[in-house]
Amino acid sequence: MIEVKGLTKKYGNLIAVNNASFEAQNGKITVLLGPNGAGKSTTIKSICSLLKYEGEILIDGYDNHSLMAKKRFGYIAEVPNLYDNLTVGEHISFIKRAYDVKEDEHIEKLIELLELKDKINATAKELSKGMKQKVSMLLALISKPDSLLVDEPMIGLDPKAIENTLTLLKRLKENGTAILLSTHIIDMMNDLYDVAYIMNKGKIEAKVVKDELGSETLKERFFEITEGSENE
């Protein structure tokens, strides 16, 4: 479970995230929804302890900077950030050892699901952007994280890969993983999300629970709140 309390992130005078509080529960897909520049990626990066911020962030009750927290979450970055000279197989070995993962079975299944079998010996710089995104996804899941943070997951993927990713996320949710993902592609989230937090200009403007939404769609609620605004 991910708990964010009073998160504020400033870049000089610019307030990228302003006192945001929310949570992502186990077995649920929580979506941070917002226009470009709303502060979604900054929020995700802060949770991963990749940025300095004000406020408190807990992963399964542990401070996100602690080792206990780091062992419990996986992160898929918006732009895949792999080591150019390492092959896919070497990336897998690296993360396995770094997280002290002993089992191989689930990794084999992930490789199959993400269709990476024939790319195992390819170096990262030989991969297309979509392939890199798949590898990034695979690496985040090697340690079987209890919480998964995904920043704009569908960018750069082909239709089949998007379908596989959606299947994967649903399967992880069924297994009890807390999934927090940021996106501005609303249509794709309709079937997927359980809870959505609508962000605009660095603030959490609304919480939308799918089961409580009634006849209104997520898209309608989103535009109602943001008025399709583009942030600076």
């Binding site: 991963c48 990749l50 770094a98 997280y99």
Partner: peptide, 8 residues
């Protein structure tokens, strides 16, 4: 690379 920060 973000991995160095995330490794527990």
């Amino acid at each position: 690379h973000h991995y160095i920060y995330l490794i527990p």
